Simulated scan of single mutants.
Amino acid sequence: MTIHKEGFKSIAIATLIFAFLNILSFFFISASAPIVSWIILVVTLGLLLFIISFFRIPNRQMTFGDSQVICPADGKVVVIEEITDEEYFNGKRLQVSIFMSPANVHVNRNPVSGEVVYSKYHKGKYLVAWHPKSSTENERHSVVIRQKNTEILVKQIAGALAKRIINYLKPGMQVKQNEELGFIKFGSRVDVLLPVGTQVNVQIGQMVKGGQTVLAVL
């Protein structure tokens, strides 16, 4: 397991806060109220370990396949439905949405190899990630990857806690399946828009792993 580069600053700040609070606790509380001092140590250590684990990148055997769409994120499948996309396709698409809790790995990966033909950031609200309107009203970043004659849109969506979306893709880039697409800090969701009629390989409520679980077959 490694730590994602996006976490270095957050972990450094959390470590400084942990050290500062426990130094104060040691000098001003431990003598008169040792139990309180121990509680502060345990709680702040737990929070520090949570921050570190949030930015983890576990060692994982990736799944590859030209005809396969691989899950771009860890989490739980919360939506599989036909929608009308008004951002890029201006037509019907099959949407599969993955909700990421704060405990999930939060690196996002390319579901297919191909050329990036669209990449756009949208300001927006911070509705909870499972809200039906979060796909169109929340802060989000959409990218479209073209593989041969098929285009797939991946939408990183901020939630009530996630207020920073990082995306590494720009139009014209050639990307490979399972390489990093971006990162969302502290819980959110990712939508994948597929051609109508695509064979979906997951079910509502299923827990999936980014870079490993086959989302659909083209």
Rank of each mutant, 00 (worst) to 15 (best):
R189E: 00
I204V: 12
I166R: 15
L193E: 04
V175K: 06
M173D: 11
S188N: 09
G205N: 04
V190S: 02
G205V: 08
L194M: 00
M207N: 14
V192R: 00
L194I: 02
G172P: 04
T198D: 02
V200N: 06
G205M: 07
L169P: 09
D191F: 00
K176T: 11
V192H: 03
P195L: 12
L181K: 08
V208A: 08
Q174N: 14
N201V: 12
L193H: 07
I204L: 14
G172T: 03
Q174M: 15
E179G: 09
P171R: 05
Q174W: 13
D191R: 00
Q174D: 15
K176H: 15
V196H: 06
T198G: 03
V208I: 10
M173N: 08
M173S: 05
Q203S: 15
E180L: 13
Q177S: 01
Q206V: 02
G187P: 01
L194H: 01
K170H: 11
K170M: 12
K176Y: 10
N167Y: 08
K170N: 14
V192L: 02
N178T: 11
Y168H: 13
Y168R: 15
E180Q: 12
M173F: 10
Q206W: 01
Q174T: 13
I204M: 15
M173G: 05
V196I: 08
F186D: 03
N178D: 09
L181M: 09
V202R: 04
T198H: 01
L181A: 02
L169N: 13
L194K: 00
V190K: 03
V200P: 09
